[in-house]
Design a binder for these strands. Structure first.
Length: 439
DNA sequence: GAGTTTGAAACT
DNA sequence: CAGTTTCAAACTC
């Protein structure tokens, strides 16, 4: 039994900052877990003792099953980190594959999680960022925020640690997840910019307001999926870091809802039609600025007196905050794709067109319609509810077979994951076929 | 390219 | 919350 088992922590949370405060441990020195989940019942090993947020903003967590080396790494296993690791952790860049608000695509380790949270417009203000060393509440003192941030810290920053910990903690890994807002995940420092899975890219500005499920993500350990099963370059990148990631941390998370919904069309539209802004008075720090609204830095724009760049991080951060104060959903996509299996965007807000009759590009609804028509079919539209249902059925069959055969849990999981890999291969193949991608 | 129109964002 | 102003993109000439 790990000495951390049963350890209780409190979360001292202000609006933008917070820390995990261990009540005590066997050696009198605080130790911190690197995973705390909030409203995440599917994360074994940790439980929040007091599910309701208390008035003093403390929440207590208990580590139930600290990590042991698992021959079958799972996403739900995370290794503990010592307090000294926290103290010794030096600022380092965490690459964020597609977070538009990360400066030059990177977070600083020392960056408050709330800042990271704020920096991820699509996650929005409803998100909580939780991390083992410091857990920061998001923007709202609500009870429904289900985003969390997982982290394990780099070996290079480690101080004292047990051999078991050494074997588990190898490389910084952070994940920001907004389960509440649709299961969006941001994985930090998982891959180099050239190794970003397309499946994640497409969900950057996806619609997530319709989400209400607490945890609809399918967690897939890419270690368990062979390259051949992945079958395409988007996936093979996962093996890129196989040797450097801790067990359980190298995880490809496939969001069930993402699979269902053809998300990202608005984002694709933006990227496709990306053009320099011409802002002159807003300093590109208002939502008038498309770059800003999409969480992009101005790049090669024709704007004047632009503050939407890395040199003005502070101003930009304040502007983002101001926007979120005015409208917590300010950075959420205006166009979503709620209708499963369809391509047409769903205007989550609704336009207020009067004179244009929604027939000019002034109207965002019209813009999206034009975009989708021009681009024929969003690849993810191939993933219909039927496909998802069929996939889930296959996985259930595998689970049942494993149960019948009396296989161990790791073995059963492997079977299911292998099946999932095969399903993904078929789905991707189908998408390629239907969209002529790569043909 | 300048001027006008338009609707979203911001402000009061 | 409604009305007004500001803003930048879309549009017209």
């Amino acid at each position: 039994m790990n000495e951390l088992e049963g350890q209780e922590y409190s979360y001292r949370g202000a609006t933008s900052e917070g820390h995990m405060i261990p009540h005590r441990n066997a050696h009198g020195s605080p130790q911190l877990t690197n995973l705390v989940t909030h409203h995440m019942p599917s994360a074994p090993g940790y439980s929040r003792i007091d599910e309701t947020q208390r008035e003093d903003d403390y929440a207590t967590y208990r580590i139930l099953h600290p990590v042991a080396c698992d021959p079958m790494p799972q996403v739900t296993h995370y290794s503990p980190a010592t307090y000294s690791e926290y103290i010794l952790a030096q600022p380092s860049h965490y690459h964020c594959p597609y977070n538009p608000w990360a400066s030059q695509g990177a977070f600083h380790h020392g960056m408050p999680s709330a800042e990271m949270c704020r920096g991820i417009p699509s996650i929005g203000p409803d998100a909580y960022c939780l991390e083992g060393y410091s857990m920061h509440q998001g923007f709202r003192h609500g009870n429904h925020s289900n985003a969390f941030l997982l982290s394990s810290h780099g070996e290079e920053n480690m101080g004292e640690k047990s051999p078991a910990q050494t074997s588990n903690i190898q490389q910084p890994v952070q994940v920001v997840c907004d389960v509440d807002a649709g299961g969006q995940l941001v994985m930090l420092n998982q891959w180099s910019p050239g190794h970003i899975p397309r499946s994640m890219m497409t969900g950057v500005h996806s619609e997530f307001q319709s989400s209400s499920a607490e945890d609809r993500s399918i967690h897939v350990d890419v270690n368990s999926l062979s390259t051949s099963e992945m079958g395409n370059s988007e996936m093979t990148m996962s093996s890129h870091n196989t040797s450097s990631l801790s067990p359980g941390s190298q995880t490809l998370v496939v969001e069930q809802e993402d699979v269902v919904q053809p998300k990202g069309c608005e984002r694709l539209k933006w990227e496709k039609s990306k053009r320099p802004c011409n802002c002159t008075k807003s300093q590109c720090l208002k939502l008038y600025c498309e770059c800003f609204a999409y969480g992009e830095f101005c790049n090669n724009c024709k704007c004047v007196n632009c503050f939407n760049n890395t040199e003005h991080d502070l101003e930009r951060s304040q502007a983002v905050k101001a926007c979120l104060v005015r409208n917590p959903g300010a950075f959420r996509p205006k166009i979503g794709s709620r209708k499963q299996g369809t391509v047409k965007g769903c205007h989550t807000k609704g336009c207020n067109c009067k004179r244009s009759g929604c027939l000019k590009n002034y109207c965002e609804c019209y813009e999206v319609t034009s975009f989708t028509d021009d681009n024929q079919m969003c690849p993810l539209a191939s993933i219909t509810p039927d496909v998802v249902e069929a996939t889930c059925g296959c996985l259930l069959v595998q689970a049942e077979e494993a149960e019948k055969e009396g296989l161990t849990a790791p073995h059963a999981e492997r079977m299911i994951l292998e099946e999932f890999g095969q399903c993904l291969t078929q789905i991707v193949g189908s998408i390629f076929k239907s969209t002529n991608i790569g043909v």
